[in-house]
Amino acid sequence: MGNPKTIIDVNELQTSFFTSKGEVKAVDGVSFDVPSGKTLGIVGESGSGKSITSLSIMRLLEDPGKIKGGKITFQGEDLLSKSESEMRRIRGNRISMIFQEPMTSLNPVFTIGDQIAESYMIHEGLSKKEALKKSLGMLELVGIPSPKDRLKAYPHELSGGMRQRAMIAIALACNPELLIADEPTTALDVTIQAQILRLINNLQEELGMSMMLITHDLGVVAETCDYVAVMYAGKIVEYADVETLFKSPKHPYTVGLLKSLPRHDIDQDELEVIKGMVPRPDQLPQGCRFAPRCPFARDLCRDHLPALDNIDDKNQVRCWIYSEEWDGPEVNVQDDYGTAQSKQS
């Protein structure tokens, strides 16, 4: 994408799961970069490969998952060629991750203080006493009330929102250059979600971090991200800056997704739907992966996979409609989606 300063560059990443029934391509040729100090949102529904992308970057895949190909360059260093011990020095130090469910990602038998202090002791070689002192500062930073007492609290003694704050404290302890947040607010109630999103936004500004936000919630993306990549069945189908993506989405999947979202702030008569369902990763269609559900799909789409191309200086789209090869009538995806959908059925 030619951005002068990028913190991480993912190129043609391929991650597969090798099961007894054969290879399942969870991430299939994904490329993007995160501009320094900015937030990239990766949106997609279940099974789109968004979480596997982030786990691949962290090299936290478990068997039978394997990175099959591609390149991940973080600050000029090739992450995929690092040894496990080199990776361990990067994780939690230079790249940190927050997960969806703080109850399962915190260790239930250690206190919050111990768990934050651990990062300092491992990565910065501090003594336990010094580490705990710094941990206290972190708890204050993430807005946990009476941080002194909470230092000695166990995860189960905290509410969901507080646990997520503690997770953020652990993740940010060593001042990471990149924070990967995988559905950080999905398990939280909206009022708590608003608190956490604001906290993450403020901290990002304060600490100058770059961020990747993985989510299924388009509202969260609109409020927190600078750039957005939309994933579908293991591939990025559209990439744009956040305003362009919401104002003039180009890929039929992105359009359908936005149209099927019930909004609390405006009245809608009937929701547009995306017909059918996400293909199983072991039975991917051979052409465009969205073709079976796309109201505009033609033989071209069903037979051949389109590439992710720049269609103007703002959107990158993986769709035949915007290519020279397109042999169908001219369409405006955003305006014609509904009519095409009803014609199809």
Partner: peptide, 25 residues
């Protein structure tokens, strides 16, 4: 009012006033 203002709106151009509550339920 707080509940409604806390929901993220899928429209980045709509900057709304967000009321952020203190504390938990």
């Amino acid at each position: 009012k707080t509940l409604l203002s806390a929901i993220p709106v899928p429209d980045p151009t709509k900057k709304k006033e967000q009321i952020i509550l203190k504390g938990d339920v």
